[in-house]
């Protein structure tokens, strides 16, 4: 029999996830449409969306491929972007400690910015079963919505008229993701350095400018850390 509190936890997860899913839907659509423009069929792109399950790390290799980047540069950019998942995973390790083995190995596949922040905002998930229900409910629904949006974007992509503002949409979505991170001065400096270097390096071939921007931003952050300590 299902415990009432865990059922409530699952329903609550679904209720709290719907607005979050709505907020990431535009990015999923843009990624699907971009993939189609690069020759990817919607179904493989949906499979990739479920595997990567992270918008920016999915989008970077697509844009770098469009810019003529090589395999290693595109792969490196995606990996660098998702490296933050190590931090999230380390922070959530206590929540997974008392869980079944299958959940410790496959539950983290649902770890993204949104699920991390949703769990951090809850102080009633100490019970392992309750946490598991919430995690699977929220993460599963987010993944289903995300993959669906990428698929819809892939189908609608070819229908977009020539000159549609798809490239502007992609930049605007990324800027919307960046905005909240600029509230503190340290990540703001990191972002501005990365943005300037990537903009200045945009004419360079093979996506070198993008990678240079990422590396410059991280280096700026490391310098700030050194000055503080």
């Amino acid at each position: 029999m299902t415990h009432p509190s865990t059922t409530t936890g699952g329903l609550r997860a679904v209720r709290e996830t719907l607005p979050v899913a709505l907020s990431v839907a535009p990015f999923g659509l843009v990624i699907g449409a971009t993939g189609t423009q690069l020759g990817l069929a919607p179904v493989p792109d949906m499979a990739v969306a479920a595997t990567v399950f992270a918008g920016a790390a999915h989008f970077a290799p697509l844009t770098m491929s469009a810019a003529g980047a090589g395999v290693l540069a595109a792969l490196g950019a995606g990996v660098l972007i998702n490296a933050r998942l190590l931090l999230y995973s380390a922070a959530l390790e206590p929540r997974f400690r008392g869980q079944p083995r299958w959940f410790r190995w496959f539950g983290p596949a649902l770890l993204i910015d949104q699920t991390y922040l949703m769990v951090l905002a809850r102080d009633d998930l100490d019970d392992p079963r309750r946490f598991r229900r919430y995690w699977l409910g929220a993460g599963g629904l987010l993944m289903a919505c995300w993959v669906s949006m990428v698929g819809v974007g892939g189908v609608l992509g070819p229908l977009l008229p020539a000159g549609s503002p798809l490239d502007a949409a992609a930049v605007v979505v990324l800027a919307g993701m960046l905005g909240p991170r600029l509230a503190a001065w340290r990540p703001a400096v990191v972002a501005l350095v990365a943005l300037f270097v990537a903009t200045a390096g945009a004419p360079l071939p093979g996506g070198v400018g993008l990678v240079a921007g990422i590396v410059a931003g991280i280096a700026a952050g490391a310098l700030l850390d050194r000055r503080r300590s």
Binding site: D167, M177, A198
Partner: peptide, 20 residues
């Protein structure tokens, strides 16, 4: 600390490349 800087740096770099 380095990983903490990776996300804002990567997203900002993509914004910059996209703007250009």
């Amino acid at each position: 600390r380095l990983l903490d800087h990776a996300a804002p740096a990567a997203i900002a770099a993509m914004v910059g490349a996209g703007i250009a």
